[in-house]
Amino acid sequence: MKVKWVVVWWTICALISFVQNQLMAQTSFLEPMLILIVMMARTTPLVPALWYTAAISVCTDLIILGSQVKGLSAMIQMALVYCMAMLHKHIVPRYWDLFVLLYFALFYFLNYYGTWGLSVALGLRFDVMNGIELLYRGVIHTLIFGAILMVMLRFSKDRL
């Protein structure tokens, strides 16, 4: 994914998140940034992917979310992107898109629990979510991600 597309998608995602924050009193149901990050990391080399992840996450925190600690989720998301790249490089060279779909579901839960754990480790406040709600949100996000991935594979020859 080229830089200009990352910026375009990030702008769209930022707008979505912003509208959600304004309308739903800072409780975002959809987290499009996660979809964007994994989608970007799917086709981007490791180093640019890490930079994009850091930029997307920190910028989103700075612009949209008001009360949370900035950079906390970026640490988790960069670690997950790094793991994803290492898996792609050393373990899963084939069936990559299928793996990405599965990894996204894992990505969503790991992002949640990783942020929680890091918040606890640093003594920060963290809004704990109900397990069923977390599962529901993870399924919804995974379905959206899968749909977008299918559309992309069908119409864009594997490159956005």
Binding site: V47, L50, W51, V58, G71, L72, A74, M75, A79
Partner: peptide, 17 residues
């Protein structure tokens, strides 16, 4: 380079936090 970048960015975010 990927590992170094990863560590550097993680450290930067940690400093930010």
């Amino acid at each position: 380079s990927g590992g170094v970048t990863f560590v550097a960015l993680e450290f930067a975010c940690f400093l930010l936090v």
